[in-house]
Design a protein around this nucleic acid. Sequence first.
DNA 1: GCGTAATCGGGTACGCTGTACCCGGTTTCG
DNA 2: CGAAACCGGGTACAGCGTACCCGATTACGC
Lengths: 260, 260
Amino acid sequence: MTSENSDRGYLKRSLDLLWGQGERPSRGPKPGLTLERIAAAGVAIADAEGIDALSMRRVAAELGVGTMSLYRYVPGKAELLELMIDRAYRMMPGDDAPRDADWRTVLRYVAHGNWRMYLAHPWLLQTSLARPVLGPGAMAGFDYALSGLVPLPLTDQERLGFIAAVDGYVAGCARAHVHAALAARQTGISDEEFWTTHGPLLEKAMLSGAYPHAAALSEDTFAVPGERLFEFGLERLLDGLAAFLAAADGGTAERLGGEG
Amino acid sequence: MTSENSDRGYLKRSLDLLWGQGERPSRGPKPGLTLERIAAAGVAIADAEGIDALSMRRVAAELGVGTMSLYRYVPGKAELLELMIDRAYRMMPGDDAPRDADWRTVLRYVAHGNWRMYLAHPWLLQTSLARPVLGPGAMAGFDYALSGLVPLPLTDQERLGFIAAVDGYVAGCARAHVHAALAARQTGISDEEFWTTHGPLLEKAMLSGAYPHAAALSEDTFAVPGERLFEFGLERLLDGLAAFLAAADGGTAERLGGEG
DNA sequence: GCGTAATCGGGTACGCTGTACCCGGTTTCG
DNA sequence: CGAAACCGGGTACAGCGTACCCGATTACGC
C-alpha cells in the first residue's frame, strides 16, 4: 500500500476516474478493459478472499490480462481502491429506500443500509484512504440522507451534523462488529471457542482487582449480539437528534452555524 | 500485513504477550530487549512516519538490532501491532480523568479522551485487526467508562450498550476526521487548495441535477471544523442516552437484557 | 494508400516486504 | 564439565507495487 503519494496530480486523476472524465483518444487500438470491469473484479476478490488478497497481479489474473495492463486504466492501486469503494457505495440508497418519508425513517434507513453495506464489504473499514472518497456513489447516498432533512427547520450545517453523526456512529459500530466477525473467519476460532480457551486468562486478570467494575459484570453481559447493540445505540442517537429538533423549534437549542 | 493467520495458537500467544504471561526461562543468555521497548519503537515510527513505514526491518533498525531478533520476542507483525495498540490505549483514562463524577461527565471524558487518542495515533484507525484487542490498556479504559455507569438503574447489557454507542460514535467520527487530516499531509495539498482545484469538477456534478439536495446546500456548509461536528453529535448522543435513562426510570423504556 | 503519431498490451526488473530456516555464541543446570 | 536451552541474527524465498521499455495495433494527415 503506497500511501506516501506526493504526486500533486494524484487527486485530480483519481477524481477524474471516479467521475468518468476521461474521453477516449481518437488514435490507437480500442481498450480491451473498462474501469467498471476492473473495479468489479477488485470488489469480487476483496469480498471473497479479504483485502489482503487484493493485488494488482491477482486482479489482472482474474481478468485474464497482464498485470501491467491495469496501469493503462488506473494510475495505481490506491486509485483502484477508490473506484472499488465508490462502487460499493452505490448500493446506497437501495431500491427499497423510502421516499418522501419523515427524517427519522430516512436516517434509520441510511443507518441500516450502511450497516448492511459494511457487513457485505468488510474491507471498506479496513482501507486506509488518503481522503474520503467523493465519487458518484458516495454523493448519491449523501444526497438521499439530505433529502430527509430538507423540510426540517435546521441550518445546513446542522443537517450535515445530523448525517455525520449517524454515519460516524454506523461506521464505528460496524468496524467493531466486522473486526470480530473477521477474526472468527480468519483464525478459524469461533466466539465460543475463544471464550472457553481464553476466558480463564482474562478471568485471572479480572480477579486481580485492577478492573473492579468489569469484574462485577454479570456473565451474560457480552452475550448481546452486535446487531442488537447497534440498534440500541442508533435509537438513542436518533432520540437525541429528535430532542435537538424539539429544542431548536422551541428556541432553546445551541445552534450550529448561521441561518439555513 | 498477514491477516490470513490460520494458526490456532496465534490468539493465545498474542494474549499471553499482552498480559505478560511469559516467564523467563532459566537457561540461556538474558534477553537484550523487552516487549516494552519494541512496542514503543513501533509506536514512535507509526506516529512519526505513518503506519506504512512500519516494518520489522524498520523497527529493528530503530532499536539497533538485527531484523530477525525481533522474532525472539514477538511471533509476527500482527502481534507487534496488537502490543502497539494496547500501549496506545493506555493513555485512557488519563491523569485528568474525573473520578466519582456523574455518568455524563464520565462518558464525555471517555469520548474526548478517545478522540484525542485517535488524533495522536491515527494509525489506530488504519489497522485491520483480526480481533479487537483485549489487553490491559483496553480493559482499563473500559473499566473506567463502566465506573461512571455503575450507580445508574440499568442492566449490565444496557451499560455495555451505552459504552459501545459512545465508543462506536467516537471511532467512526475520528476515522473520517483522521482520514481527511492524513490526506492533507500525505498529498501535500491543503483543504483549501483541494477545493479550489477540484471544486469546479464537483460543481459540474452538482449542476447535473443528480444531487438536488446537495446542490442546494449553502456554501459554508462544509466549513464547520471536524471537531465541532464531533462535539455536536456527541451531545446529541448523550442527550439520547439521558432520555433512555429517564424512560427507564419511568418504566416506559424498551429494556436491553434481564435484570442488572 | 501510406507514413506516422498515438495508444494498447504486457514482459522484465528493482526495491521493498514478512518470515522460515539455520548456525554460532552464551548462559545455566545436572 | 558436558549438555541442554536460549539469544542474536544472517541468508534466502515468495510475493508485492510499479518504473521502464518494446512490439503490435489503430486512425489521422497528406
